[in-house]
Nucleic acid binder design. Sequence first.
DNA 1: CTAGACATGTTACTCTATCACATTTCTCTT
DNA 2: AAGAGAAATGTGATAGAGTAACATGTCTAG
Lengths: 171, 171
Amino acid sequence: MSSPETDPDATLAFARHDHAHCACDTLARAEAEAARRGARLTPVRKRTLEILLEAHRAMGAYEVLDRLAADGFGNQPPVAYRALEFLVENGLAHRVRRLNAFAACMHPGEDHAPVFLICRVCDAVAEAPGAAVRAALDQAAADLGFAVERANIEALGLCPACAGGADDATV
Amino acid sequence: MSSPETDPDATLAFARHDHAHCACDTLARAEAEAARRGARLTPVRKRTLEILLEAHRAMGAYEVLDRLAADGFGNQPPVAYRALEFLVENGLAHRVRRLNAFAACMHPGEDHAPVFLICRVCDAVAEAPGAAVRAALDQAAADLGFAVERANIEALGLCPACAGGADDATV
DNA sequence: CTAGACATGTTACTCTATCACATTTCTCTT
DNA sequence: AAGAGAAATGTGATAGAGTAACATGTCTAG
Ligand SMILES: [Zn+2]
Ligand SMILES: [Zn+2]
Ligand SMILES: [Zn+2]
Ligand SMILES: [Zn+2]
């Protein structure tokens, strides 16, 4: 698909890394986490997670559905939406509302408050650690007597690569 | 469904207030802000903002459209979307992605980083001050070399009224 | 009064998401 | 092993959200 070393295949968490290994490793951790929670990682669900991991980027439900259908699973929207919902509910994937898309969780099992950084130029999406952000959010909410249960924290901006000069010039 | 005193008319910023006054006052500030920015607050746009302010809650584009159509404006989606987009671009309204909805900004003009608190029981939506949250977000992003330009910070949980006991019991 | 910019109206369409129902597969109990 | 009930899947239909494209109108600058 592209050079293994510098592939800016959008999506990488901005940092270069051995993606094949990272995806495989993350899948293993996801499976462990699913087992720990007693959640059934059925074929469709597992395949859905694999698809997200392989792409290593945020994917629309219909894009995932196409892949699933190609693999012999159902080809109707609910097939993808149900699998994705399961993954999100079990902390194996996240929903990026700004993009109407889903992305595999890079830290399954670890209790975390993800922050999504979306590059407006190359569409890369990174899941950043947001413990501090979440803490600030909880505090701001508490000031109003509001108890936060779930949060979506998404930022649009420029990734380091795109900010590094070649951004608007290359458009 | 509710008593006059404790009416959880969804929407209030959790705190009781003279809404008619609050809406009127906010509209005045929004008009001033629009003028300051040289943005043309045309009839449709102004009416759209009024609709959002009167409802004092997050409204879907199509819901706004119905109101606009009833007032003699166009009745096709672009009419509402264009007006709403204008308001958002000019800081007079916000988009709440989790709800696929829009809400009038309660602090037009004041440079602010809004945090939306959405009650999962009564659907109330409050725009909380999120300067600290935004600061934490900027820091978390900076750690990855990412420059945040815009952010959506939305939390789902329980508002003080619904957390105060009568929540799931009254359903 | 003409050209251009901006705003609006309208048609049609795409993308996103959920409902409802039939069928199958798993699990737990007897 | 049998059978009830829960969970998961497949499928068709439909609702909801958002945009592209084009025509018309409006206002201003020259
Ligand atoms: Zn995660
Ligand atoms: Zn980028
Ligand atoms: Zn605001
Ligand atoms: Zn509430």
